[in-house]
Simulated assay, not measured.
Amino acid sequence: MAKGFKVVIPARYGSSRLPGKPLLEIAGEPMIRHVVARACASGTDEVVVASDDARILEACAGLDATTQLTATEHRSGTERVAEVIAARGWEADTVVVNLQGDEPCMPAALIDQVASDLAGCPGAGMATLASPIRRVEALFDPHVVKVVTDAEGFALYFSRAPLPWHRDEFLGSRASLPESVTFLRHIGLYAYRAGFLERYLAWPPAPLEVAESLEQLRVLWHGERIHVGIAERTPGPGVDTREDLGRAEAWMSADD
């Protein structure tokens, strides 16, 4: 397990699909409190909730986490995490995990895993996780982000398109997944070195990033490496819609 890593939870109030999302209740508590509990159950030595809305920070009262009111103009959670790093003056080699505020079902073990993966990869500024895709529907779903890696587990590309494309198998039928290749679903949990984020924010958005609406492609575009670990557990559902709230509550009940 990585030692001395931080967890920052970026939580924005103004979600276009689900306004006030972090404050919506799951099992009788605001979602943000469940996310903080997941972070606190990991091996981190500090949890910071970063939001542009005081109501979200107030909802974290009494939890073992600090809070920081951040700017409203951030375009991504990554930018919000970077503001926290700068304000707190963390050293350049500090490992920081970005646990998004709409992930109340993220196992603490995966937070530890992504931090450890980055700590063990000095050649990478960033690490993330993936899990095998078992259903052909998921491979062709543009809401499911796919990732392909090299032999050492470093990302080659992320895409909303089905990757890799099995030429021979998919020419005939797309009713099932070919067994000769592994398909990976990207899990939106990131670890960075604090100094790496300074470089990241200095880069302009990359054309591939804009096309796919995937901010991690900026890293590959500028020649940096992302290590992709295979998740030791399958995370529960993130929350993007009201229906997802019910799915998250059901997952929590089954996970107890």
Rank of each mutant, 00 (worst) to 15 (best):
P205N: 10
E215Q: 01
F183S: 02
L217W: 07
D244R: 01
R242G: 08
P178C: 04
A250K: 08
D244Q: 06
E209Q: 15
V239K: 12
G195R: 04
E212I: 03
L245C: 07
R233M: 14
T182V: 12
Q216M: 10
F196S: 01
L217E: 09
H186V: 10
G236Y: 06
R185I: 00
I230Y: 05
L197F: 10
L220C: 08
I187K: 00
Y192F: 15
S213Q: 11
S213P: 01
P207A: 04
S176K: 00
P235K: 02
P235G: 03
G238K: 07
R233W: 13
T241K: 04
G195H: 03
R193G: 00
Q216G: 01
D240W: 05
W251P: 02
Y190R: 06
L214S: 07
I187V: 12
W203A: 09
Q216P: 14
P178V: 02
M252V: 03
G223T: 12
D244T: 07
H227V: 14
H227I: 07
L201M: 15
L245Y: 10
D240Q: 08
D240E: 13
E209A: 13
Y200A: 05
A250S: 12
L177V: 08
E209S: 14
E212T: 00
H222E: 10
L197V: 13
V239Y: 11
L214K: 01
A202Q: 13
S213L: 11
D244V: 09
W251R: 05
A206E: 04
R218Y: 11
L201W: 05
R185E: 15
T241I: 11
H227F: 11
G223F: 11
E198G: 09
W221K: 11
E179W: 04
T241C: 11
G246W: 10
A211R: 12
E249C: 07
V239A: 07
A191E: 00
G188N: 15
I230F: 12
Y200V: 02
P205M: 09
P205D: 14
P205K: 13
W203T: 08
P205Q: 09
A248E: 04
G246D: 15
G238W: 09
T234Y: 01
F183C: 02
P178G: 04
W203F: 10
G223K: 13
G236M: 11
E212A: 05
E209G: 07
G223D: 09
P204G: 05
F196L: 07
R247M: 12
L189T: 00
T234L: 08
E212D: 01
I226W: 04
T241S: 15
W251D: 02
R225S: 14
A202T: 01
A248Q: 05
P237E: 03
G229W: 06
P178Q: 07
E249S: 14
V228N: 05
H227C: 09
L189E: 03
T182E: 13
R218G: 08
W203P: 03
F183M: 03
S180Q: 14
A202H: 05
L189H: 06
L220I: 11
L214F: 03
L245F: 10
G223Y: 11
L201K: 09
E232K: 04
G236R: 10
I230G: 05
A231T: 08
E209V: 07
E198K: 12
P207I: 07
I226L: 11
Y190A: 08
A231S: 09
A206D: 11
